[in-house]
């Protein structure tokens, strides 16, 4: 019995997953988290630090870490990488001028060794806004097709209306589950 198997067994008992939610400031990370948890989203201010929520979803215990995206906080992102099962990258689809920034940050994250095993879910958020780019445009601009090192998927969504949030999270859960909770 190898170490990995033991770890797998331990995780299986609790069915616990750790999701790390990152993205540029004003992407809507906190709003997604709160909406998903059924909380009020009308008075959300920029995240100074981070939020942690533990959610029970489909029999899994999700530890979701939502870390502020301001430039000065990005250097702290690394502190949250350890034992992350899934990375949720949130994009403000209407903020065209910072998509390059967004691409750069994402690709530098993906080079992080401690995130090397993590599943990547990209949320093309703010689809409710007029002028928001489609998930397909975002996929091209962020050059997601270049990513060979991680399982990834992009979902368009709107944190304000809640559209497609569940589908995205479900995909990430399924992907992680198939990886770490072997059905033996």
């Amino acid at each position: 019995m190898g170490l990995l198997t033991i770890l797998r067994k331990m995780k299986q008992k609790e069915k616990e997953m750790r999701l790390l939610m990152l993205g540029l400031d004003n992407a809507g990370k906190t709003t997604i988290l709160k909406k998903f948890n059924g909380e009020d989203i009308s008075l959300i201010s920029p995240t100074l630090g981070f939020n942690i929520k533990t959610l029970d979803h489909r029999g899994f215990k999700l530890n979701v870490w939502d870390v502020g995206g301001q430039k000065s906080l990005r250097s702290y992102w690394r502190n949250y990488f350890e034992s992350t099962d899934g990375l949720v990258w949130v994009v403000d689809s209407a903020d065209k001028r910072r998509l390059l920034d967004c691409k750069r940050e994402l690709h530098s994250l993906l080079q992080e060794e401690r995130l090397s095993g993590a599943t990547l879910l990209v949320f093309a958020n703010k689809q409710d806004l007029p002028g928001a780019l489609s998930a397909d445009d975002i996929r091209q601009i962020l050059e997601l097709d270049e990513i060979k090192t991680h399982h990834w998927q992009i979902y368009h969504c709107s944190a304000v209306t809640g559209e497609n949030l569940l589908e995205g999270i479900d995909w990430v859960i399924d992907d992680i589950a198939s990886r770490i909770f072997t059905m033996d």
Partner: peptide, 14 residues
């Protein structure tokens, strides 16, 4: 086509 998509993506401010 690809270029033009990217182009508009960065230029299309209302």
């Amino acid at each position: 086509k690809k270029t033009s998509i990217q182009d508009t993506a960065f230029q299309a401010m209302d």
